[in-house]
């Protein structure tokens, strides 16, 4: 008997086990590339690609990998897909690849990806692993989108480069600086916990 339905396997990544807000994983890219919405989306999609394909491969060959070298095998699998994503961005989206800089190859050490392989794909069927990976990546993309929207709107008055706040608005330059990333994320994290606390009380 399956303990969880497939849809709950997907939905848990969005909020209950959101990699960024609930598990505090993958914070380096989350903070580093969210100074503009377009960068956040690009990073989210690149991570989605790597996570989906790594989960697919790991769940396919989980029985072949000896237990002692499993982490090393996961890392090689992940690193291969990261290289593919990196070369793809360089070839077709050069400005974005330039803006993301070393953070694209750094997806390889994003703990969200390795964490899912160790915690999920190595123990579950291909289908469930794919759905789990899809849910986790959606949660990751949403978190990046949220943080980069806040930072771009407050820091430059724009959204995806389009002016959204009138000329009366004086951009908060701090939001584009590293300091703004830490502060904005800290406050969003507090808000997420506040909402979680409120809904838990209502459910009880």
């Amino acid at each position: 008997m399956e303990a969880k339905t497939l849809s709950s396997e997907y939905v848990k990544g969005l909020w209950d086990e959101n990699p960024v807000f609930r598990q505090l994983l993958g914070l380096c890219p989350t903070l580093a590339v969210t100074n503009a919405v377009i960068n956040g989306i690009a990073m989210g999609l690149a991570t989605t690609f790597v996570l989906l394909l790594s989960s697919l491969v790991v769940s396919l060959i989980k029985k072949v990998i000896p237990n002692q070298v499993r982490i090393a095998s996961y890392i090689v699998i992940i690193a291969s897909f990261v290289t593919v994503a990196d070369l793809f961005l360089q070839a077709f989206f050069y400005p974005i690849s330039k803006a993301l800089g070393p953070y694209v190859p750094l997806i390889v050490v994003n703990c969200v990806i390795l964490g899912r392989q160790e915690a999920f794909s190595s123990k579950n069927s291909v289908g469930r692993s794919m759905i789990d990976a899809l849910g986790m990546s959606t949660g990751f993309v949403l978190a990046l989108l949220l943080l980069s929207s806040v930072r771009e709107i407050l820091g430059a008055g724009t959204f995806l480069g389009i002016q959204v706040l009138g000329s009366w608005f004086k951009p908060w330059i701090i939001m584009l600086l590293p300091a703004g990333a830490f502060i904005a994320f800290g406050i969003l994290l507090g808000l997420a916990l506040l909402i979680e606390g409120k809904t838990k009380k209502r459910r009880a």
Binding site: L177, P178, A179, F182, G186, G190, L194, G197
Partner: peptide, 22 residues
């Protein structure tokens, strides 16, 4: 404040530190 305990306040402190380092 309760929701900021732990990581939340640590991040805000890190932000202020980053500001000082700029």
């Amino acid at each position: 404040p309760e929701p900021l305990k732990g990581a939340g306040i640590a991040l805000i402190v890190a932000g202020i530190m980053a500001l000082a380092f700029t």
